[in-house]
Computed example of a mutant assay.
Amino acid sequence: MDTTHSQMQILLCDDDEDDRMFFSDAIKELKMQNVLNVFETGLQLMDYLNHPETYLPHILFLDINMPCKSGLECLKEIRENSKFRDLVIAIYSTSASEQDIEETFTNGANIYIKKPADFNKLKKTIHQVLNINWQYHTAGLNKETFFLSI
């Protein structure tokens, strides 16, 4: 896999059609150089990631609560594969339960984002996450900086 693209490669995996639409609209309005690939299920996401010609994206926004294969199952599978060790994973969920936050933290997610209900907050959140220097941020990863609240 290669990350030499000039555009930021972004993946979103979310089973909720409205959430996918709002996220896509927010990305468009940010006017950043990016390519967004969207998946409805964890199965589709894992098929895409495991395809030999797939380029490693810069970041994956991953919903937790999905049918068939949950975001947590995808997270565990991704972190078990060494070719994805540098993939930044942002959990992107309506849940703010301590159990979900703890489980995703201990299983290797980089950040946990509670989905904002407000479109402008969503844009601000996405913009902030896409502008994090992940190489530096991951080195100092701790539970206090894991949950993003805007």
Results as ranks from 00 to 15, higher is better:
residue 1 M to T: 07
residue 1 M to E: 10
residue 2 D to E: 15
residue 3 T to L: 12
residue 4 T to E: 12
residue 8 M to A: 07
residue 12 L to S: 06
residue 12 L to I: 08
residue 12 L to C: 07
residue 14 D to H: 03
residue 15 D to Y: 03
residue 22 F to N: 13
residue 23 F to Q: 01
residue 24 S to M: 14
residue 25 D to K: 12
residue 26 A to L: 08
residue 29 E to G: 07
residue 31 K to N: 15
residue 32 M to I: 14
residue 32 M to K: 14
residue 36 L to A: 02
residue 36 L to F: 05
residue 39 F to R: 04
residue 40 E to F: 03
residue 40 E to S: 13
residue 41 T to A: 08
residue 41 T to L: 08
residue 41 T to Q: 10
residue 44 Q to S: 15
residue 44 Q to V: 01
residue 47 D to Y: 00
residue 50 N to H: 04
residue 50 N to I: 01
residue 52 P to Q: 12
residue 52 P to H: 04
residue 52 P to N: 13
residue 53 E to V: 00
residue 56 L to M: 13
residue 57 P to A: 09
residue 59 I to G: 04
residue 60 L to G: 04
residue 60 L to V: 06
residue 61 F to A: 07
residue 62 L to P: 03
residue 66 M to G: 03
residue 67 P to N: 10
residue 67 P to I: 06
residue 71 G to I: 02
residue 76 K to Q: 10
residue 77 E to Q: 15
residue 77 E to H: 04
residue 78 I to C: 03
residue 83 K to H: 08
residue 85 R to W: 00
residue 85 R to P: 01
residue 85 R to M: 08
residue 86 D to G: 03
residue 88 V to S: 07
residue 89 I to E: 03
residue 91 I to F: 01
residue 93 S to A: 03
residue 96 A to S: 15
residue 96 A to D: 15
residue 98 E to P: 06
residue 99 Q to S: 14
residue 101 I to E: 05
residue 105 F to N: 07
residue 106 T to L: 15
residue 107 N to V: 11
residue 111 I to E: 02
residue 112 Y to F: 11
residue 113 I to V: 15
residue 114 K to R: 13
residue 114 K to C: 07
residue 116 P to E: 13
residue 118 D to R: 09
residue 121 K to C: 06
residue 122 L to C: 05
residue 123 K to W: 00
residue 124 K to A: 13
residue 124 K to I: 00
residue 125 T to D: 08
residue 127 H to C: 12
residue 127 H to I: 00
residue 127 H to F: 08
residue 128 Q to G: 09
residue 132 I to K: 01
residue 133 N to W: 04
residue 134 W to F: 15
residue 136 Y to Q: 15
residue 137 H to D: 15
residue 139 A to C: 14
residue 140 G to M: 13
residue 142 N to P: 06
residue 143 K to Q: 11
